[in-house]
Design a protein around this nucleic acid. Sequence first.
DNA 1: GCCGTTTTCGGCCCGACTGTTTTCAGTCG
Length: 576
Amino acid sequence: MPRSNDLVANALSELADLIAITGGDPFRVRSYEKAARSVAAYPIDVDTLGESGLDAIPAVGSHIAAKIASFVHRGHIDELDELRAQVPAGLRSLLDVPGLGPRRARQIYDELGVASVPDLLSALGHERLRGLRGWGPTSEARLAQAIHDFQGAGGRLQLGVATEVAEELVGGLGSQGAVQRVTYAGSLRRMRETIGDIDLLAAADDAEQVMDAFAGLASIADLPVRGPTRGAAVTTTGVHVDLRVVPPEVWGAALLYFTGSKAHNIHLRRLAQRAGTKLSEYGLTRNGHVLAAATEAEVYAQLGMAYVPPTLREDRGEIEAALDGSLPHLVELDAIRGDLHTHTDLTDGLASMEEMAAAARARGYRYMAVTDHAPLLSMQRMTTEKALVQRAALRALSGRGGLTLLHGSELNIQPDGTLDWDDDFLSHFDVLVASVHSAFRLGRDAMTARIIRAIEHPAVNIIGHPTGRSLGSRPPIDFDRDAVFRAAARAGTALEINSFPDRLDLGDELARRAQELGVLFAISSDAHATRHLDNMRYGVGTAQRGWVRQENVVNTWPLARLRRFLAKEHVASRSA
DNA sequence: GCCGTTTTCGGCCCGACTGTTTTCAGTCG
């Protein structure tokens, strides 16, 4: 089953949406949304907490604590049941369409009877929206485009969600006696940014017993396909899962086969064939005689090539590189020495600086930058005074437990490329991340100039989530990629690989191109809660998919070298 | 509904952007 905090957060979030749709107090809506985020990020499982424990969760007061308790102990929340009875189920899904909020969702339901995304598409097709107050042809067209972009994500799971589901299933199966080994394979193991379904692979002598155990897992709702060695299931959260059970002695060959990609496998089999051998999920064989099957490494070795990490297996040149020994030394999670983009509760983070620092120490980090939002993102109410107070507190805390704290900020790149604060004030930060948070649809030339101006600022070290995309909801901003990458390489400004599962930005292909043009990277969590520090692995996976070498990731460097980079000493002296 | 070195009531996330207006409403970050 999913973590209780996630279930509760979903319920609170649904409450917020339904209150909004039914015209409830916007401040109340915000309270539920905030509580939902806070619960999701809370490190302690809510189903282990009593009333006072629930009340201690930030943004949870007595009313919401009572609702959480009801959800945990009685399985439902009265007010949620009542609202569900009032609002058609499909209406809430309209809120997922970017640009459509609660007021207009309610309006098109009341006046046109539109209660689902298909209804909405039909109404758009008949140009029925433009007759409503506040609507016109342009807003119709924009909405149609938004739905198109939104559906492009096509029901695929985000990497973070899929990983959590898969790890839980692996854990559940792994504790069964009959199972000798179990892991997930497929696109999830390759760490693609979205995943269609989850592929599990188990090794056992008795496949039937494993299939029984699989069917019996609490999170498996249905097992519509069930053969002796293969089952296809749906989880209680609607995720499709395939399980294959193989004999232990062919584990490696099976893992290779089920990890893919298809293109990688086809290329490997062609190589095998040319060598007079045959590669299948049962092993690399010659005339029926098994040459290699137990481990992936053996199979690659028998094919005369280096082991290819799963994240590279897309047939994008990795096989040739593995054959001639030129695979890159990829960045690894345990080489990450610190995080250069984090937030605290001074702005929109959920944890205090002390809590974030403790979590970073627990991860074994040597340094962490606190980069709260800057004043131009006005909803966060940052001020110069607050930044200075934070800096003093951070200096006092730095060094404890071997963790150096760097004082930074996540600046806002204005449409003209200028930033929050004046140059003198900026020059006193240890590290500056600059990001686009507004005017996403600036024209290509203006957008390119805007970002390059920020890159070339003498105090800016990292461009945060460079394309601004949000997987499944917002397309990337448009700029001349090569021009921006060349500018970053020239200026000694790193580009971020943001590890948040709905960002993964830069994505793999852009990261690979950027590296070719000499760009350095910061792989950052953009954590807004202690738990988010764990997202680092998704950023590292994305970097690996982009062939990013460890030496090009600045937060694998020792602190002294990182500081020289942050000072931009290697490029030019700072402007006055 | 939450929360408190100004407050236990009355604030709360402010401003930009967009398309529709004829002075503004809705959405977003």
